[in-house]
């Protein structure tokens, strides 16, 4: 009933734990992409920045109404696709790093970019409050909490990846492999 020698060493157990952290984080990031699209969709249908408002603004610049509708829809479609693709690419890179560990550079580059973007985006919260664009509503707080958790997940991705690399380097020395 016992496992083979070294299979349950402290190093192997830690490796599995950090790999699991990474896998969950990667999946969460993909789900977060879907959530971002849903949030934007809600904003466009029920928020101040509605679909109609965007069309009216486009019409004001002197284009035909039908053309304004098409251009707005295409723009929103591209935006949604871009958001989903970015999250999917980052998430899949995390999964690949966990399984094959052959995309080190890409993993760190992509994760760094999205972490910086998310941190910058996070700065809009205090700015919005100070300029009066947003108030401390429940929606605002919920959105804030989601963004905090995303930043936390991204930092955890980095931490887990670094720990995995450290443990892999340690492995031969510790276990004589």
């Amino acid at each position: 009933m016992s496992a083979g020698a070294g299979m349950n060493s402290e190093t192997e157990i830690k490796l599995r734990r950090y790999k699991n952290n990474l896998a969950i984080g990667g999946r969460y990031y993909i789900i977060f992409g879907v959530w971002t699209v849903v949030k934007l969709l809600m904003e466009l249908t029920m928020g101040d920045l509605s679909f109609e408002y965007l069309i009216e603004e486009t019409v004001k610049s002197g284009v035909d109404r039908l053309f304004a509708i098409i251009i707005t829809a295409v723009f929103i479609g591209i935006l949604f696709a871009f958001i989903l693709i970015v999250h999917l690419v980052v998430g899949r890179n995390v999964a690949r790093f966990v399984k094959r560990h052959d995309n080190r550079k890409r993993f760190y580059t992509y994760t760094s970019i999205v972490t910086i973007v998310n941190c910058l985006g996070f700065l809009t919260y205090p700015a919005d409050i100070m300029t009066g664009v947003s108030s401390l509503s429940l929606t605002f707080i919920a959105s804030l909490l989601v963004d905090i958790s995303v930043i936390f997940i991204l930092i955890d991705l980095f931490y887990s990846a670094v720990m995995i690399e450290k443990l892999i380097k340690q492995k031969p020395a510790v276990e004589g492999v």
């Binding site: 009933m1 496992a3 083979g4 299979m7 349950n8 192997e12 157990i13 830690k14 599995r16 699991n20």
Partner: peptide, 20 residues
């Protein structure tokens, strides 16, 4: 067979049915 049970804190388990 070999697997990872949820309760055992990332320890791998080898289940040897013929012996059991």
């Amino acid at each position: 067979y070999m697997y990872l049970p949820a309760w055992d804190d990332y320890r791998v388990m080898i289940k040897d049915n013929p012996s059991d």
